[in-house]
């Protein structure tokens, strides 16, 4: 059964058709990638799914319900978590606090109870902390737990952002270029983590990625887009072999010849 279904999705910014008629479905437990050249509209598709943009046309269904027209802040509660291409962490807080912020949808207390810090708030904090520690252990972030984001290396921030998305406890996780800017070793770690997310956590993963090595290694299916339009869909191997996709990346055969 498909967890996420996108039908004829389109968004136009003035004259720019950033996304124009994209359809795909991601199955429960699948790792699905969207690839395409720069400016193809991949991040825009993510912004549409996470409802930062409202689509000009089309439908988004998640977990059997039509969620088109929801608010961005409803996504976490539905079980959709995401990372951002240009890392959007809470820079002045520690890694631990960033991950705890991911637990927001699970909070039970209201602000008056928080101000009084009732015993129930403390109990809840312990539970949040336990969940967050699982994420820290999973992503091996122990050494950075109490470090503030602003001083951390790029690679670590990227991983913290994945951690924050995991702390939400989602069903679907959207990763926008999880390996960009990472070293070969770090990329390999990301590959293992994605495998574990699917296998051990039962997560469904939708990612945008330029690194075809990583895509071939972890993804079941791939959608290629260019200029906001879908080009091809299939296994990583099939999509890479598709002439349209090759043309989009390399220019048309004639151009290559010149």
């Amino acid at each position: 059964m498909s967890l996420l279904e996108v039908e004829d999705l389109a968004v136009h910014f003035g004259g720019v058709k950033a996304v124009d008629g994209v359809s795909f479905a991601v199955d429960q437990g699948e790792v699905f990638a969207i690839i395409g050249p720069n400016g193809a509209g991949k991040s825009t598709i993510f912004n549409l799914i996470s409802h930062i943009y409202q689509p000009t046309r089309g439908r988004i269904c998640f977990d059997g319900a039509d969620i088109t027209g929801s608010k961005p802040q409803d996504m976490a509660r539905l079980g959709i978590a995401r990372t951002f291409q240009n890392i959007e962490l809470f820079d002045h807080s520690t890694v631990l606090d960033n991950l705890l912020m991911g637990r927001h949808t699970h909070r039970q207390s209201n602000f008056i109870q928080d101000i009084l810090f009732l015993p129930s708030v403390r109990r809840e904090e312990r539970l949040h902390r336990e969940r967050v520690e699982e994420v820290i252990e999973f992503l091996e972030l122990e050494a950075y737990r109490n470090k503030r984001i602003e001083g951390l290396p790029y690679g670590v921030r990227k991983i913290v952002e994945i951690g924050r998305a995991l702390a939400i406890g989602p069903k679907l996780i959207l990763l926008d270029e999880p390996a960009s800017g990472l070293s070969v070793e770090e990329t390999q770690d990301v590959a293992f983590w994605i495998e574990d997310m699917r296998r051990d956590m039962g997560l469904t993963v939708l990612m945008v990625e330029h690194d075809m090595g990583l895509v071939s290694q972890v993804c079941d299916r791939v959608l290629a887009v260019a200029n906001g339009k879908p080009l091809a869909q299939g296994t990583p191997h099939e999509v890479q072999a598709d002439p349209h996709v090759q043309a989009a990346y390399l220019g048309t055969p004639e151009e290559v010849a010149v």
Binding site: S50, I52, K71, P72, Q73, D74, M75, A76, R77, A81, R82, F84, E88, L89, F90, D91, H92, S93, D97, L100, M101, G102, R103, H104, T105, R107, S109, N110, F111, D114, I115, F117, V121, E124, E125, H128, R164, I168
Partner: peptide
């Protein structure tokens, strides 16, 4: 030190992320 205060900091540092956290 509680969720409310953390949501304040989240809104201060990144509104788009705060929304993605369900805030």
């Amino acid at each position: 030190r509680s969720p409310t205060g953390r949501s304040f900091l989240a809104v201060r540092d990144s509104e788009v992320s705060a929304r993605a956290m369900g805030i």
